[in-house]
């Protein structure tokens, strides 16, 4: 039902737009090797969609979907994917992030392996950027103390 007196217009519009923005961000990440963009830009858009959800629906709604702990976890996972692919290339007797060496374990030709490696790195970068951007916004807007902690302290 309509809650009278709340800013219902911005809320409804952002509610409808956020899933499409998130899908667009994933599109930018996944097609990074054909079109402009890539991990960083897509991560920024994904983070921006989360920020939009935060400023329109408030802390509780976002915390239910994507809490700060998960954001920290995601930023670590993103860096792990990136550096993991890099070290995998080192183990396969190439340089750091020398994707074409990945063909030895992927059973495809080197050019295709390079494309897949770039895709993996971009997914990692996207996750890391999104999570870090979101947690920076989180910290700024809540003053570094999440409302849950305050409730527990009381």
């Amino acid at each position: 039902m309509i809650i009278r007196g709340e800013d219902i217009i911005i809320k409804t519009i952002s509610r409808v737009l956020v899933p499409f923005i998130q899908l667009y961000a994933l599109y930018v990440i996944m097609h990074g090797h054909y079109s402009p963009g890539g991990g960083f830009q897509g991560g920024v858009i994904l983070g921006a969609s989360m920020v939009l959800l935060f400023i329109t629906h408030g802390y509780a709604e976002v915390n239910r979907k994507f809490s700060e702990n998960i954001a920290v976890l995601f930023s670590s996972i993103g860096v792990l994917i990136y550096s993991g692919i890099g070290f995998l290339c080192l183990l396969l007797l190439g340089n750091y992030l020398d994707y074409s060496k990945l063909y030895k374990i992927l059973s495809v030709d080197p050019a295709h392996a390079r494309s897949l490696g770039i895709l993996g790195v971009e997914i990692g970068v996207g996750f890391a950027v999104m999570a870090v951007m979101f947690s920076i916004f989180f910290d700024i807007s809540t003053g570094g103390v999440s409302p849950d902690d305050e409730e527990e302290a009381e």
Binding site: P19, Q22, L26, M30
Partner: peptide, 21 residues
């Protein structure tokens, strides 16, 4: 298949957003 995975993830996160009321 990338599209299926991505739409699945986004729909999982936001299926209550698009059709809230």
């Amino acid at each position: 298949s990338l599209g299926v995975v991505c739409s699945f993830v986004v729909a999982l996160l936001g299926h209550d957003l698009l059709f809230a009321n």
